[in-house]
């Protein structure tokens, strides 16, 4: 699983907003240049980004296994022609390039995930989206990070307790219901306790955020994002 790992790489020191700009621009360039040559250039760039973030490519590829079946099946299915029934291998080229493109964008975004704390991401969200929507997103995102492991642990405990009582022998709908009822009631209970606690601690629309400043080391990242976007736009027009 890809997650934040503390470190002092160049990518850790960049402003989160610059890193988000690079990811989006990289994806735009990958969509504009889905050709063997374009993707070869972007592969080198993705490897460089992974290197700067000291990202383990093996870890990224492992996390990738969830969507891998889709990426393999898409080009294969594209070769099938219905009328008249035939196999056209040439039709697989673009879908195969698209599948490879996904891997490159996933590598670049994994570099962000590995090098950015929740706190920095929250600050980036709140400084980009103004006003109350920004506060809602920022607070909500940090609560999701905080409560995901708690809820996962509770659901695992419920499933183990159920299995110990031969709950695995019950019909499927019944098993799903049990897990979801336990999950949902605990979630609602926690939400109510949490909102009481938030109100008791002066939960405000205008909290103090960590300072984010674009520094000299962000300049190359922003320049890269600009160049990638310009290249993508140049191709589009």
């Amino acid at each position: 699983m890809i997650g934040y790992v503390p470190g002092s790489t160049v990518a850790h020191r960049l402003d989160p907003r610059a890193k988000i700009a690079v990811q989006v621009a990289f994806a735009a360039a990958a969509f504009a240049y889905t050709t063997p040559r374009g993707l070869a250039v972007l592969s080198v760039l993705a490897l460089a980004v992974a290197r700067l973030a000291s990202l383990s490519l093996a870890g990224v590829v492992r996390s990738f296994r969830v969507i891998l079946p889709f990426l393999v099946a898409a080009p294969l299915v594209a070769t099938i022609e219905l009328s008249p029934p035939a196999i056209d291998p040439g039709a697989a080229v673009y879908p195969a390039l698209s599948s490879y493109r996904v891997l490159l964008v996933v590598v670049v975004s994994a570099a962000y995930v590995r090098t950015t704390t929740v706190r920095e991401s929250r600050a980036a969200i709140q400084r980009t989206v103004p006003g109350r929507p920004g506060v809602f997103l920022g607070v909500g995102v940090s609560l999701v990070f905080r409560f995901l492991p708690v809820l996962r642990r509770e659901i695992t405990a419920v499933r183990e307790a159920s299995a110990a009582r031969l709950g695995t022998e019950r019909p499927l709908v019944d098993r799903i219901e049990r897990v979801a009822v336990a999950g949902a009631t605990r979630t609602l209970g926690r939400a109510d306790r949490l909102s009481t606690a938030l109100s008791a601690r002066c939960f405000a629309w205008n909290p103090t955020l960590p300072r984010l400043t674009l520094t000299r080391i962000d300049a190359p990242a922003l320049a890269l994002a600009g160049a990638l976007l310009a290249a993508a736009l140049f191709r589009a027009v």
Binding site: M1, I20, Q23, S63, Y112
Partner: peptide, 12 residues
């Protein structure tokens, strides 16, 4: 258990 903006902008 995956994460990243790539799943919102580039994944099939």
């Amino acid at each position: 258990g995956t994460a990243g903006i790539s799943y919102l902008i580039a994944s099939p």
